[in-house]
Amino acid sequence: MSGDITHRAAQWIAGGATLVAGSVLSDSAIEHYRGSFANKAMFLPLGASALSIVHDGNLAARGARTGAVGSWTSGTHAASVGVGAAGLGFHVYNIAKQPGGFSLGNFFYQAPIGAPAALVFAGALGAAAHALSSGASALGPVPLQSGRALAGFTALGLAGTAGEAALLHFRGAYHNPAMWLPVTIPPMAALALARTALTGRVHWVTTASLAATAALGLLGTAFHAYGVSRNMGGWKNWRQNLLAGPPVAAPPAFAGVAIAGLGALLLIRRFSRG
């Protein structure tokens, strides 16, 4: 019974990791294409996130229990974390050397901080999901079974993702009222989830706000697709507008993080029940 819940939680978390990695894959493909793949390292996040998708997607879809985590799988997640961390460093370095340095303009338009962080997040979530599924009680020093560490981690991820949405929607001057949604609902979910992580008790608000965030992530893609059509030439001018308009691939990251959070709630509930 408890093993089933653990496995189901692992599946949810793996599913969340898959969505985040998917968002990273499509977003970095588009953004690094914008950057003309000027540096060969710009291909790395594509490979890392694609591998994460294969492994985590597999786990999310699979019903049966697995044995010990294979080294290939561990390697994949380590690669995502490593590539993400390196990307983060490179993006920071890149901003530093632009005219204006760490200015708002460069945070708007230069290499984003949030994107490589999302890859780190996807890798870590994937690793946790696989560890859970294999019955491990901890991932390195981090305890897994209580779900509270995972809840805290996803709360952090949610806050970061909302922070990036806040920055980029500020760049768009919140010209559409819907642009306020991802900077209101996910932060509420992040707070509720953080509280759950600290107290170990699941309030319905936590579940509801996470579910709303997940739905918002998918809805956001539709909003962004509409946003692309609002640019000159609409979808007929997709070669420009996919790059110039709002990133169609970004909002599912919210859904991914929220779904992982819901997975963590499954674990926490098990203890609060029993």
């Binding site: 760049r171 768009g172 001057a173 010209h175 559409n176 946003g227 609002r230 640019n231 000159m232 030439g233 420009q240 110039a244």
Partner: peptide
Amino acid sequence: LSAPRGKAHPCV
């Protein structure tokens, strides 16, 4: 415009 405004498109 750096973002849409009404029916006007942002700068291309």
